[in-house]
Each structure stands twice: as C-alpha cells, then as structure tokens.
Design a protein around this nucleic acid. Structure first.
Lengths: 182, 182
DNA sequence: TGCTGCATGTCAGGATGCTGACATGTGGTC
DNA sequence: GACCACATGTCAGCATCCTGACATGCAGCA
C-alpha cells in the first residue's frame, strides 16, 4: 500500500458516492414531509426503541449528541415527540414519539423504503446479503482502529435490545461510543 | 415493500453506518495534516485531473459548487493550489495544485490509503470487487431515479478522461449533475 | 442576428454538524 | 463516606454544506 491511486477503483470513493446518492435520494423523498434525513433517522430509531436518551439516539443515527439536541428540539416543536422536563433517573431524558410522530414516521418510512428498493433493484438477493454483511464488516473494522470505539449497536450475539430497558442496563463496552468529546 | 422495518437489516442503514465510520476514520487520519475530508477529496481529484473547474470538482467530490468555493478558498489561502483571476475561456477557472499541494497530497493520500486498507482487511479480493461493483450500481440506480441525474464520472466505456481537456468537451449527458440548484 | 438552453462563478441566508468545555448524576472502589 | 471514572445534557463557537437567486459566457437554432 502506498497511496490512493486511481479514484475510480477506490472502494472508499465508491462508498462515498453511493452514500451521497442515497442521502440525496432520501432528501428528495422526505422533502414533501418536511423531514430532513437526521430527523427521519431519529424518528425511525425512536419508533423501534421508545424511551431512548438523546445521547443514545445520537450514536445510533451517527451524529454527535450536540447535533441531536437541535434535531430533537425541532421535532418536539412540531409535536412529533415528547421529552420529560426532568430526568426520572440519572440525567437521561427518555424520548417518546407522539401519535402524530408515529403517523408521520409511517409515511416517511414508506417513502424511504421505496428509495432503498430502487437502490437495490439491480442486485440479487445473494448480492444484497453480501453487501449488507460487507458494509457492516467495514464499519466494524474501522471502528476497531479508533481510540474510542463505536456505537456497538448490537453486541455480538444478543438480538436487538428493546431500548427502554437498555438505557441504563447496557453499561459494558461503552467508551464514549460513536461520537467523541475532547 | 411497505416500510423500513428492522433497521438492523436495512442496507441503507448499514451504508450510512459504514460511511460514517469511514468519514470519522478519515477525519482522524487527516487531522494531523490539518485537512478536512472535503479538502482532501478536492486535492485528490485535482491531483488526478489538473485544470478542473470548481463546479466539476464539486460534482466529483459530492458537494455543491457553493460549498466547493469555500473549500478552494481555504486551500488557495494555504498556497496548496492556484486559480487564475480571469477565465481563459468561458467562465470556468481551471484549478491547479502547487508543489506544496502535491507534496501534502502525497502524505494525505498515504494516510487515507491506510484507512481504506484497514477497512477492507477482512474482505477477500473477490468480496472487495463485488463490494465496489455493487456500490457503484447502487449509486447509479439512485441517480437514475432523480430529476437531475448525477455526476456520471466515467461514461460507460471511456476510461478516465484527463480532465483538463474534459472541462468543455464533455457536454453530453450533463443535466446539472450531482448537486442541484432551484 | 437574436433567442434560448445550459453551465459557471458568486452572494446571501439558514440549517446542520462538529470540537471544546462545563456541570450534574450514577456506580464502583478505596 | 470520599473519590474517581463515566455518561448525560447543555452552552458557545466555528466549519461545513445546503437552498435560493442572480449575472455572465458559450453553443445551438430559428
């Protein structure tokens, strides 16, 4: 290995290209609903894991918790989610979708699913499985090299924790994951 | 298809995850050189295609040309590249790397190549080829659905145009690519 | 020749995201 | 109990990036 060389052959470049295309297509699909991609991502994660804290939500949507603040404020101002004024325990404020939030999420989720379907239309089922597997592997390999490890969404083996109970119970393996301070 | 469903199974989510991890790792690798990812991307593209206009550069690095302005100004202020005050033809200002720019690019390129190598370490050569192919396919499939089609970096068949000559000669297939106005 | 389409550069405004830093609450340890 | 590591929420400042809009230059066509 010496340097990047031919960009057209670089997988990193291709990943950026695909990711940018996906981001743009999602932007277009979500524009009619007046949702940005980070806003949609938050709703989606929150729909599957009610009661998550802002920091945990930030890790799962790949932004800093500082950025998540703004996102949540925007969504809360539109009545799509609620956060308690005081923390019931510790400092974490468990966030919940409102009925409006769930309704909008359903529409947004359909729109995004259509985008994803279009993206994968030309790939066989096997190719799709492989693609998913390899993307996850790439992410893991990159995280392992960083000083502060990443989200570690699903620990190796366990299946999709419900979220609400996971806020304070999943303590192991957190070294300020995903986004970093300092 | 109805909605996104399980996030852990979503290829779009995995792509975002991998892309975020790559972005973060590149940030870390480039920080010692005081280069941001967009700045590095511009240098890299410019190294392989001297004389590109800012707008063309923007398409190839997946940002808007407005954002590219700021990036180029920063790099020019550090003496890493030069832009003529007046356009030799049309409105496009051909951008060139300076000797300092090329030297820094070499170091940055090595650092990024190491990141990419770490990312792909666990994948076989076949898997890497397939991953690259499928990422490009995903990007193309997404672009084809948008009103304004994308960069179309390398037209099907032709090999890596030298750039300088391509500024004004590659007219076909451009419907305000990549990033959109209005 | 004049008109139209298109691409480039550029300005303005705002949204988003990041780094840095600090205070607070919790749990484990001495 | 005191202390320490760690996580959360939050404020401030800055960089990046977007949408919208406008003027300019080139090519094609009536």
């Amino acid at each position: 290995m010496q340097h990047v060389g031919n960009l057209a052959a670089s997988i990193g470049y291709a990943m950026k290209e695909a990711s940018a295309a996906l981001r743009g297509a999602m932007d277009d699909a979500l524009r009619p609903l007046e949702l940005s991609v980070p806003q949609y991502s938050s709703l989606e994660v929150l729909g599957q894991h009610p009661g998550l804290s802002a920091a945990e939500l930030a890790r799962r949507t790949f932004v800093t918790r500082q950025s998540m603040q703004g996102v949540l404020q925007g969504l809360a101002a539109r009545g799509l989610l609620t956060r308690p004024a005081a923390a019931p325990q510790g400092r974490a404020l468990p966030t919940e979708l409102t009925a409006d939030g769930r309704a909008l999420l359903r529409r947004a989720s359909r729109a995004v699913a259509e985008v994803e379907h279009r993206m994968l239309d030309g790939l066989s089922a096997d190719d799709q499985r492989r693609l998913h597997r390899d993307l996850v592997r790439c992410a893991e390999a990159l995280r392992s090299g960083r000083a502060r490890s990443g989200p570690a969404l699903t620990s190796p083996g366990e299946e999709e924790t419900p979220g609400r109970v996971a806020v304070f119970t999943r303590r192991a393996g957190h070294t300020e994951g995903g986004t970093r301070d300092h």
